[in-house]
């Protein structure tokens, strides 16, 4: 099984260099979002919106796949602590803690009326979003936006021996197409097993693959491997 497509544009936020992100640059990237919506954006949602802004043009109508291992888990965790302490939880915080909250805010801010899917991909990691994209191409769409995002896991959860999180928030947005220009890639499954960790650990490998012009990227999971190969 394989799927061919092109990466028309891709973006990362925050920028992958040692310099600290200038908050003014972030504000500028978020400047077109209406104030009444902007007040609902968590730091993670802001990071997601910056990456999307760099990847697609405003008011682009595009089916979108969001993939996040942990979503807004820090928010949910804080609410659980409040419940434990006998406090009432905020309806706004609750509504923004669900896994599709950022997708919902995106559809409102971008007036995007095409479908959006939100995945919590588990051990398959970033491949799950590409499998979903394969399905959308098969349904007849010629362009798909993938947004991979995660915050560091709340420190309450054990780090070892799991491979679930890194210490940085990171978002990658990719606009894929099965026609036109872009980096031509072939996505396929392979038999070799391994464990490269879940999505937060896989995203830096994808960034490296795209930015360093490498021939292929192979990500191992406990059941098989996923391969992205330049054609």
């Amino acid at each position: 099984m394989y799927q061919d497509f092109k990466v028309q544009r891709w973006s990362v936020w925050p920028p992958q260099n040692d310099q600290k992100t200038d908050p003014l640059v972030q504000d500028e990237l978020l400047s077109s979002i209406p104030k009444m919506l902007k007040r609902r954006l968590s730091p993670l949602a802001r990071t997601v919106f910056c990456a999307i802004n760099l990847c697609i043009d405003k008011n682009t109508n595009i089916p979108t796949i969001f993939s996040s291992t942990h979503g807004e888990l820090a928010k949910s965790f804080k609410m659980m602590e409040m419940i434990e302490g006998g406090e009432e939880i905020s309806p706004t915080a609750f509504s923004l803690s669900v896994h599709n909250s950022i997708a919902g805010l995106f559809s409102m801010a971008y007036k995007n009326k095409l479908q959006s899917t939100v995945i919590a991909p588990g051990e398959e990691g970033i491949a799950a979003a590409f499998i979903e994209a394969t399905g959308l191409f098969d349904e007849g769409y010629s362009e798909v936006l993938i947004v991979l995002y995660d915050d560091p896991l709340v420190s309450f959860y054990p780090e070892e021996p799991y491979k679930l999180s890194t210490n940085e928030s990171c978002v990658v947005a990719l606009s894929l197409s099965n026609v036109g220009l872009g980096i031509p890639l072939r996505f396929s499954i392979q038999e070799q097993k391994g464990d490269d960790g879940e999505q937060p650990l896989q995203v830096p490998l994808l960034i490296q693959f795209l930015s360093e012009n490498k021939e292929n990227l192979i990500i191992h999971t406990p059941r098989h491997s996923w391969c992205w190969e330049r054609r």
């Binding site: 009444m36 009432e88 905020s90 309806p91 706004t92 509504s95």
Partner: peptide, 17 residues
């Protein structure tokens, strides 16, 4: 002012508190 239904719930909670 442009508030929505989530704001109504939030405001209801704030008034109760």
């Amino acid at each position: 002012l442009g508030l929505d239904s989530i704001d109504a719930l939030e405001l209801g909670l704030a008034i109760r508190k």
